[in-house]
C-alpha cells in the first residue's frame, strides 16, 4: 500500500535556488495560517494598536507639548508606527525560540531542506505580519485625525523606511532567538519597551535632560521616526544636532548597518548549532 518515495536531490544551482524559495513559501504559508486561525492573535493585531493610539493620543497627549508646535496626535503617529515595527522583533524572537523548544528547528536541521529557505520563510511571514500591523495602525491614525500632507509618493517612502527597519530587526530577532529560551525571549519586553521610548517616538529629545536627549537622538528608531515625520509632513522639529539634521540618510543607514551585522551573525549562529 505504501508508495516508495525516492529522495529528490537538487542537481543544479538553479534548482537549489528554486527550492529555497519553495521552502520559504511553505514555511511562510504555515505561519500565516496561524495568524488567520488564531483569534487572540488577530485581536492583538487589531486591538493593541487602537488601545495604544487612544492611550497616547488622548490620555498622555493632553499633557504633551510638541517642540516647535503642532498637533500632538500628528506628532505621535510616526512614533507609533516605528515603535510597532521595533516591537516586531519580539514576534520574531518568540517564534524562533518556540521553534527551537518544540523540536521544529531540530527537525528542519535533520531534513534535506535548504537552510536559507527556513530563514526566508520566517522573514516573509514576519514582513506580511508587519504590513498588516502597519495597515491597522494607519487606519487608527486616520481615525484620530493624523494624515500625510506631502503626497502619496513621500508617504509610501516613509512606509518603506518603516518596513526597512522591521526587515533589519528580523535578523536581530533571529540572532537573539537562537541564543535565548522562550522564557527569556518573553522577558526581552522589559529592556525593549523603554528603548523604544528613549527616542523621539513620544517626546522630543529636546525636552529631555541633556544626556537622555543625546541618547534618544542617536537611537536608530529616532532616525526612522524623524524621517517619517518629514516625509508625511507631520510636526516635530528634531533639533539642531547632526543626527536630527540627517534623519533621512540615517533612517536608511541604521537598518542597513543592522542587517549587515546581524544577518551574517544569525547565519553563523544557525550553522554553529551543531557545536
Amino acid at each position: 500500500m505504501t508508495t516508495l518515495i525516492a529522495p529528490v536531490i537538487p542537481r543544479s544551482r538553479l534548482q537549489r535556488l528554486r527550492w529555497t524559495f519553495a521552502d520559504g513559501g511553505v514555511i511562510a504559508r504555515g505561519n500565516l495560517i496561524h495568524l488567520v486561525r488564531n483569534p487572540s492573535a488577530i485581536l492583538n493585531l487589531l486591538l493593541y494598536p487602537a488601545v495604544m493610539v487612544l492611550l497616547f493620543g488622548y490620555v498622555f497627549g493632553s499633557a504633551m507639548n510638541v517642540a516647535g508646535g503642532g498637533d500632538y496626535r500628528e506628532f505621535l503617529m510616526p512614533g507609533m508606527f516605528a515603535q510597532t515595527m521595533t516591537l516586531g522583533v519580539m514576534t520574531t524572537m518568540i517564534i524562533v525560540t518556540n521553534d527551537a523548544a518544540r523540536g521544529v528547528t531540530d527537525r528542519f536541521r535533520s531534513m534535506p531542506i535548504s537552510r536559507s529557505g527556513v530563514v526566508l520563510g520566517r522573514a516573509c511571514a514576519d514582513m506580511v505580519n508587519s504590513v498588516l500591523e502597519l495597515a491597522v495602525l494607519l487606519g487608527c491614525g486616520l481615525a484620530v485625525g493624523w494624515s500625510w500632507h506631502r503626497g502619496a509618493g513621500n508617504a509610501l517612502t516613509a512606509l518603506g523606511l518603516l518596513l526597512l527597519l522591521r526587515f533589519a530587526l528580523i535578523w536581530v530577532g533571529i540572532y537573539l532567538g537562537l541564543m535565548l529560551t522562550p522564557e527569556s525571549a518573553s522577558a526581552a519586553w522589559m529592556p525593549l519597551m523603554p528603548l523604544t521610548m528613549l527616542a523621539n517616538t513620544f517626546v522630543s529629545p529636546e525636552l529631555m535632560p541633556g544626556w537622555m536627549g543625546a541618547i534618544s537622538e542617536w537611537n536608530p528608531l529616532s532616525a526612522t521616526v524623524a524621517a517619517c515625520r518629514e516625509l508625511f509632513g507631520n510636526p516635530g522639529w528634531g533639533g539642531d544636532s547632526w543626527a536630527a539634521a540627517h534623519a533621512l540618510p540615517l533612517a536608511v543607514a541604521w537598518p542597513v548597518a543592522l542587517t549587515l551585522v546581524f544577518l551574517p551573525l544569525s547565519a553563523r549562529r544557525y550553522r554553529r548549532l551543531d557545536r
Binding site: 527550492w19 514555511i27 495560517i33 523548544a101 523540536g103 531540530d106 531534513m111 531542506i113
Partner: peptide, 24 residues
C-alpha cells in the same frame, strides 16, 4: 525528538502535507 514537533494550529493532514512539501 522528545517534543512532538507538530503545529498545533494546523490540522493533522495539513501538518503532514507541509512536511511533505518541505521534503520537496
Amino acid at each position: 525528538g522528545q517534543n512532538a514537533a507538530v503545529d498545533e494550529i494546523l490540522t493533522g493532514r495539513e501538518n503532514l502535507e507541509m512536511w511533505g512539501r518541505l521534503y520537496h
